[in-house]
Simulated assay, not measured.
Amino acid sequence: MAVFVAAAVLLGVGLAGTAQAASGLTFKNLATSFCLDSNDVGEVYTLGCNGGDFQEWTVGTTEFATAVTFRDAATGRCLDSDAARRVYTLACNVGSYQKWQVTRNDYGTYSFRNLATGFCLDSNASRQVYTLDCNDGSYQKWA
């Protein structure tokens, strides 16, 4: 239930009470203040927030509203991960590696847990993005 509520808050709830895709969202890491970014070849990293299309993400719902997908505005590719804890973008598909459970944290931040691996989206001061065991740390919180 908490995942659904956080996803609805993140997506915005329509007048009929159904979640609708939100576009043009930027995700800023709480620890580094860098924004989630990607490029045309599928690499995902963080950079200083610049308002560019590569830092804009469309959040979409999945079946049963148990998770969301993140589609990069510049590339049209979806945020993906694997069991080796790598994060990248690929052509959007219906696979669970592209589905993320959203948890709302304190101070208006969110954590994103990969549905397939159970690992959380994480980053570091070197601007790398990967997944790790969920630990409630500030490197796993995104505003």
Rank of each mutant, 00 (worst) to 15 (best):
A6W: 01
A22R: 14
D40Q: 12
N39C: 03
A19Y: 13
F27K: 02
G12I: 05
A22Q: 14
L36W: 14
K28N: 06
L30H: 04
L30F: 03
N39H: 04
T18Q: 12
V41R: 10
M1N: 01
L15Y: 10
T18N: 11
D37W: 06
L36E: 04
F34W: 09
Q20F: 05
A19L: 15
A31W: 03
L36T: 00
S33E: 04
S23A: 09
L30C: 02
L11G: 14
F4R: 00
V3K: 01
G42T: 11
Q20C: 03
F27W: 05
S23I: 01
V41E: 08
S33K: 09
C35V: 05
V5H: 06
G24M: 03
A7G: 14
A7W: 08
A21V: 08
G24T: 04
V5Q: 08
K28R: 12
F4W: 02
G17D: 03
T26M: 08
A2I: 01
V13D: 00
V13F: 00
L11C: 15
T32G: 09
S33H: 05
C35K: 14
E43N: 14
T26E: 15
V3L: 02
T18D: 09
L30I: 10
A31S: 06
V5F: 00
T32W: 01
G14N: 14
L11M: 13
E43K: 14
V9K: 15
Q20W: 07
G14R: 12
S23L: 03
V9Q: 15
D37E: 04
D37G: 04
A8C: 07
C35E: 05
N29I: 00
V13R: 10
V44E: 03
A2T: 04
A19V: 05
A19D: 10
A19C: 14
E43S: 13
A16D: 07
V44D: 06
Y45I: 13
A31R: 08
A16W: 02
G14C: 12
V5D: 08
Y45Q: 09
A19Q: 13
L11R: 15
A16H: 05
S23N: 02
L15T: 14
T26I: 08
A22N: 12
E43D: 15
A6L: 06
V9C: 10
L11Q: 13
Y45C: 07
V44A: 04
F34V: 10
T32C: 01
E43V: 15
A16I: 08
